[in-house]
């Protein structure tokens, strides 16, 4: 009564080989993927250190103050007093203009960089031989709305510059050496790729937490991630930003100053005509000079002192003998 189909030797060997291979495969896969320690608590640090330095040593410590109501004029005058746009932008340069486009607010409310300045600056860069001009910011309100409503987007395009809106893929973690706050923090580095000149353009605005929003506070707009946390230590952050971002040139627009309700403003009654435009290569000095437009002394703004102490510039801007010009 043996079974009709007994297991012969050949069949047995074949089955045994297959079974053996199956076991080996399972065991091999398990051994290869075995993880005795489990996931580690923090992902490995992959931040790059610092950003490129865009400042020009031969132009260090220059500052000019132009008075007048027409931005195109005062910008040109201030630049002439600094040696002309040609001393900052040359043939083939790829320029990034960092504007303040934080809010979806029309130009008349002065909560954002004025489109006339964006247009004129981009135009001058091209006239000086720039190969490309890019305008960017990581605004607080909806980015597309901000660039459209502020007029910055259309003005940039009219001048032939391209506008880069922030996208997740354009941020990379960056650490600043010796910094407490900017460590492994997402920074809008995408638009900086291939850039040879960096120009910051910001309006003068009241700011309840930091005291004032000018060219240094403007670099906040290069930060991504949960940057609102930095309000808990805003002065230190601005000082660190002053070290992290070394621009070729900054332009501080005090043609109209937002005296109250900043940094959003929202009403013409928040504004005062101050008819001043400050340009320079030392953002700390430029901001210290601009503080006067808000009726503040540099000592009232702790981030200035902290930035100077960190080696980012000079608070006592008069020491740099600013050139005064008037339209």
């Amino acid at each position: 009564m043996p079974s009709a189909d007994p297991l012969d030797r050949r069949e047995f060997l074949r089955r045994a080989t297959r079974a053996g291979l199956g076991v080996a495969l399972a065991g091999g896969l398990a051994a290869l993927s075995f993880d005795a320690s489990g996931p580690s608590a923090s992902p490995p640090e992959r931040a790059k250190t610092g950003l490129p330095d865009f400042s020009l040593p031969q132009a260090a410590g220059r500052i000019a103050v132009a008075r007048g109501a027409v931005r195109r004029e005062t910008l040109w005058l201030a630049l002439q007093a600094l040696g002309g746009i040609e001393s900052f932008v040359g043939r083939g340069d790829r320029v990034l203009i960092k504007v303040n486009a934080a809010f979806a607010s029309p130009p008349i409310l002065s909560a954002t960089t004025h489109p006339d300045l964006v247009f004129e600056l981009a135009r001058l860069c091209y006239a000086a031989g720039a190969a490309s001009v890019v305008v960017t910011d990581n605004p607080i309100n909806d980015p597309a709305s901000c660039f459209a409503l502020s007029g910055i987007g259309p003005a940039a395009r009219r001048a032939g510059a391209s506008v880069v809106l922030p996208a997740e893929s354009l941020f990379r973690p960056v650490s600043l050496e010796g910094a407490r706050l900017i460590r492994n923090w997402p920074v809008l580095t995408g638009p900086l790729a291939g850039i040879t000149r960096l120009i910051g353009v910001a309006p003068v605005k009241d700011h309840h937490r930091s005291g004032a929003s000018m060219t240094l506070k403007n670099w906040y707009g290069l930060l991504g991630g949960r940057r609102n946390l930095f309000h808990q230590d805003v002065h230190r952050l601005i000082a660190e930003l002053a070290l992290l971002v070394r621009p070729t040139l900054v332009v501080l627009d005090g043609t109209t100053t937002m005296m109250t309700n900043g940094p959003t403003g929202g009403s013409l009654s928040d504004l005062r005509e101050t008819r001043t435009l400050i340009a320079g290569t030392d953002p700390v000095a430029v901001d210290a000079c601009g503080a006067e437009l808000l009726g503040k002394r540099p000592e009232d703004l702790p981030f200035l002192g902290a930035a100077e102490k960190a080696g980012a510039g000079t608070v006592d801007f008069r020491r740099l003998s600013p050139r005064e010009v008037a339209a």
Binding site: F103, S105, I140, H207, H208, R209, N228, H231, Q232, D233, V234, T260, N261, P263, T264, G265, G266, S267, S269, D270
Partner: peptide
């Protein structure tokens, strides 16, 4: 310290 909310409030005052 914080007051991010105050900073971003868009109405005037």
């Amino acid at each position: 310290p914080c007051i991010v909310c105050q900073e971003n409030c868009p109405v005037s005052p």
